[in-house]
Amino acid sequence: MKKTAILFPGQGSQYIGMGQALIEADQEAAALMEMAEEVSGFPLKKLCLEGPIEDLTRVLHLQPALTAINLICWQQLKKALPDFVPAYAGGHSLGEYSALQAAGVLSAEDTMTLVTKRGEFMEREGTANPGGMLAVLGLTIEEIDNLLKSYTGAGVVVVANHNAEQQIIISGDQKGLDGFSEMCRENGAKKIVALKVSVANHSPLVAGAVEDFSACMAKIPFHTP
């Protein structure tokens, strides 16, 4: 018997106009967006539909904005396929919170509360410790790890995500990203692409958000899936 999984995207997948067709065509989708705006305190609909992309991409805005669109997509999928029950729900980084809501672990309101605070704390840390993320294509995780062990250049750089056999995401400050990406090119990387994010996610540069966010999570009820 086949089992189906649903996977929610994370930061970097945003674009101007995302969710527009659903929000404009369906009252329940519009109501969910209104709830997300009320919880977050941000004009998420305007950011998603009109931008500008620089404002949408700010981690402070992007985490609640993208999560709202994820929840709307899940809402609409359930309406279209009322008997559909996935065997698994997962998410790519930020998308994990949408997966928890889809699995019944979090309410939609609590999901929006968490991602709003997560964005707030990560923006604070990103402002204090600027950085970004790069996708390295053409090298394996073993090759990247070995290069990192021998990297003696300036800055901070770490592996953030292992997306595929030869697609590794690195995160760090600008000096670290510049120096290590050049090392990757010299050692066979086929392509290096900057991600559409505003902070160095999954790196020590945003680790200061953990304590405050953990305190927020402790106040939220998590239910059995």
Rank of each mutant, 00 (worst) to 15 (best):
Leu94Asp: 15
Val59Tyr: 02
Glu120Gly: 12
Thr113Val: 14
Ala89Thr: 15
Asp83Tyr: 04
Pro43Arg: 01
Glu125Phe: 08
Arg124Ile: 04
His61Met: 08
Gly91Ala: 04
Leu49Ser: 11
His92Leu: 14
Lys79His: 08
Arg118Met: 02
Asp83Ser: 11
His61Asp: 04
Glu120Arg: 15
Leu62Asn: 08
Ile69Asp: 08
Asp83Ile: 06
Gly41Trp: 14
Tyr97Arg: 06
Tyr88Thr: 08
Met112Val: 02
Leu100Ser: 07
Ala80Met: 12
Pro130Gln: 06
Ala108His: 09
Asp110Pro: 11
Ser98Val: 04
Val115Ser: 10
Thr111Asn: 07
Leu77Ser: 12
Gln76Gly: 10
Leu100His: 04
Cys73Pro: 03
Leu77Pro: 09
Gln76Glu: 14
Gln101Asp: 04
His92Ile: 02
Ile72Cys: 07
Thr113Lys: 15
Gly132Lys: 14
Gly131Asp: 07
Gly90Gln: 08
His61Ser: 13
Pro82Gly: 00
Leu56Glu: 03
Ala108Trp: 03
Val85Tyr: 06
Gln63Phe: 00
Asp55Gly: 08
Trp74Ala: 01
Gly132Thr: 07
Leu60Pro: 02
Asp55Met: 12
Thr111Gln: 08
Leu66Val: 01
Thr67Ser: 15
Ser40Phe: 04
Gly126Asp: 03
Ile53Tyr: 14
Gly119Gln: 07
Ala68Gln: 11
Ile69Trp: 06
Lys45Trp: 10
Thr116Asp: 04
Leu106Tyr: 01
Glu54Tyr: 00
Pro64Glu: 02
Gly91Gln: 11
Gln63Glu: 07
